[in-house]
Design a protein around this nucleic acid. Sequence first.
DNA 1: GGACAGGAAGTCC
DNA 2: GGACTTCCTGTC
Length: 295
Amino acid sequence: MLTLSQYPKVTQHRDEKGEYIQFERPYHFDINKIFDCGQTFRFEPYEGGIAGIAHGIYVHILQSENIVKIYGCNEKDYHDFFAHYLSLNRDYSEINNDIFSHFPEGIIQKAQASAHGVRILSQPLWETICSFIISQNNNIPRIKKIITSLCEAYGDKIECFDGQTRYDFPTPDKLLLCGEDGLRELKTGFRAKYLIDAAEKWQAGVFDRFDELPYDDAKKALLTVKGIGEKVANCILLFSCEMYGAFPVDVWIKRVIDKYYGGTLDLNDLGEYAGVAQQYLFYYERYINNEKDDK
DNA sequence: GGACAGGAAGTCC
DNA sequence: GGACTTCCTGTC
């Protein structure tokens, strides 16, 4: 495993905006790309950085050339959650070397350069399961809209450092309480019954000790949920479980394979970090090499 | 202007 | 292979 021996050291501070922590900006860490590459749907650009909720905590993250600041996060939050969430123990220079050694030379180098600074987050499992069930046959602005209304309707209140009230992602039992009809009212459409099935499976213990399962078993468990197929399962494993070998193939990646790899790419020979590479390729094709504005 | 097809980080039957 | 919720875009 390509990891650093420890997480970056942080110091805690306070200014007129409130309490924050700061640490030295790691290599290959760019919040604008990390939070706008389709792996999470709960953050938005805000006052020069990005802001949103993770693990029930509202944070405002800012970066300069050398420093990262996180408002709303104290040292305890950092060690308990955010350091891991932001995958700050990963050595992306080594990860990139591993990727380059497995992929045919050419487009992957361009893709990595365009996506330089992207990191794969380690997001809470339940929220990630729901988010990617909602993502199917859907576009990113609408996915965000649905998740926001889901939180506002059924999530617990969060008291934020800026004095405002926001809402956490609803728990499985909350979703079961609101039922399929309640979910349909939030424009989830045919995905409402999938979310209910996921909540029932969760309550039944299908995802207990999930982090101890190897890739094949974890995927098998995910595929028992209605509405989770191969692509969504791989997204969940990649964006929540640090299974960097998971390689979700969506319409954009199909396009990449057709355009740059002659229609075939052997998914079994892409190495331990194929999923990270997938994110670079997705980013390149979706945001860089596609002229259309996304708003 | 407004109708309409096409498409969106897919999956089910 | 068609259907599925909803919504946004481009075209005529």
